[in-house]
Simulated assay, not measured.
Amino acid sequence: MKFSSKVHDGILSLQVEGDLIGQEAGLDLIEHINDHISSGLILAAMDISALRYMNSSGIGVLITGLTKFRNAGGEMVLIKPSESVKKLLIITKLNSIFTIVDTEEEAIVELKNK
């Protein structure tokens, strides 16, 4: 799994790609999230459209990220999950916990309204 990020207008924009399997794969991502929360950024849009596969450990990474942002008084929105990831979110009922949108623009609107 690889990820990149940028900050624009007070929102951390993350792009995640590859396979999010195993806790180790997500440790760098969680550390990156922690660093930004520590610097005062509490809103994030995570583009997971290029995430091919995710297992239970990957789900744990997403939940950890969401929890960290919410505990800081912020929010994290998921952008355009692939069909396989979307099915996994539905099966696990996590689609009711995460805000899921189709575009970065929609994510920004959601986050600005929080």
Results as ranks from 00 to 15, higher is better:
L29A: 03
G60N: 11
M1G: 07
M54H: 08
E24Y: 08
L66V: 07
K2P: 00
D102F: 02
R52P: 01
A107W: 00
L88I: 15
L43Y: 13
I33L: 08
G18V: 06
I97S: 14
N95M: 07
P81K: 05
I108R: 15
S49F: 00
I108D: 10
S39Q: 15
N55P: 02
M46D: 01
E24S: 14
G65Y: 05
L78A: 03
G73T: 10
L51S: 01
E17L: 01
L111E: 03
F3H: 13
I100H: 07
E106M: 06
G40A: 13
G74C: 06
D47Q: 01
E110H: 09
K80F: 00
A25M: 10
V85H: 02
L20M: 15
N55A: 15
H32S: 10
F3D: 06
L78G: 02
M1Y: 03
N113H: 09
V85W: 03
E110G: 04
A44G: 05
L111Q: 04
N55Q: 10
M76D: 06
G40I: 12
L111I: 07
D35I: 06
G65C: 09
V85P: 02
L66I: 08
I21C: 12
E75D: 15
N95W: 05
A72Q: 08
K2H: 11
N71M: 10
E24H: 11
